[in-house]
Structure formats: C-alpha cells, structure tokens
C-alpha cells in the first residue's frame, strides 16, 4: 500500500465540519485515499422490530434455516468424534456407500460415547461437521443421498 501522509489540516477541517453540521460521520475520498472522521454514537441502542438471532460462534446457524434434505441430524447434545479412537481413520468419508444402521460417527455426552447410525442405506454426500466439534440437538451431521 502506497505511503501517504496524514493531512492534518484536512482532518481538523473535517472534524470542525462534523461539529458544525451535527453529522456523526464524514468520509472524504480522493482517488485511492480516504479519510473518515466519526463521532462515537452517544445514544442508547434502539432495537426496533424483530431482534437479530444470536448464537455463539461455536453453534449452528439460526434455526429457521432447517436441516437440508437427506441430512442426518444430531439426536443429542455433545461432542462429535469422526473416528472411534484418536489416530484411527474416520468411520466414513464423502463418497462412501453406507448401509442402514452403519455407524457414521460418535457423539460424546457426559463421558459416554453414543454411535449415530445411518437411518437408511445411502451415499455420503457431505460430512457437515468437523471432528471434536460440539453439536446441539438437531444440528446437521452428515448428508446422505
């Protein structure tokens, strides 16, 4: 990125303009370079209309998405393990054909490991969850065709 000196005079002028006009933000751009001055909003947060759905970074997206067709979803809360032991190959990989009842992965809850089995025979299209990640009830695990 090309170096550019801060034009102090310009910044001061923009700041004055902010005060005079009562605006909260002014951005001034010449070519590639832009200067923005803004005043921190002093008002309270106003929530109007429905609030945004908030979930933690580790959790799945908002519930209204709904699971995709062919998705095998988590029957319980826990931590997913894609292989039976650390270092062993995963139970399944994309492209595999599985039979009904075949173990797809494990979910660990309160120190017990619970196998999640294929509800029907099919082909693994996608493994929607990574190893050792926490899942909530109903979260997508595997997409079966």
């Amino acid at each position: 990125m090309a170096e550019f000196d801060v034009n102090e005079a310009m910044v001061r002028k923009l700041a004055e303009l902010l005060d005079e006009t009562g605006l909260t933000e002014i951005e001034y751009k010449v070519g590639e370079h832009a200067v923005r001055v803004s005043r921190a909003a002093s008002g309270h947060l106003v929530a109007s209309g429905p609030l945004p759905a908030m979930t933690g970074p580790a959790m799945a997206p908002a519930a209204d998405a709904g699971p995709r067709t062919g998705a095998v979803t988590a029957p319980m809360v826990g931590v997913v393990y894609l292989s039976s032991e650390p270092g062993t190959p995963p139970f399944i990989k994309p492209g595999d054909t599985v039979s009904e009842g075949q173990t797809l992965l494990l979910i660990e809850a309160m120190k017990t490991f619970n196998p999640v089995r294929a509800p029907r025979a099919g082909k693994v299209v996608e493994i929607a969850i990574s190893d050792k990640s926490p899942v909530e009830f109903g979260e997508e695990l595997v997409i079966l065709e």
Partner: peptide
C-alpha cells in the same frame, strides 16, 4: 435471541 450463546437440547 438475547443470550450470548444458545444450545438446542431436544
């Protein structure tokens, strides 16, 4: 909607 995190449990 307001909580920092949510977990669907069943």
């Amino acid at each position: 909607r307001l909580a920092d995190e949510s977990v669907c449990i069943g």
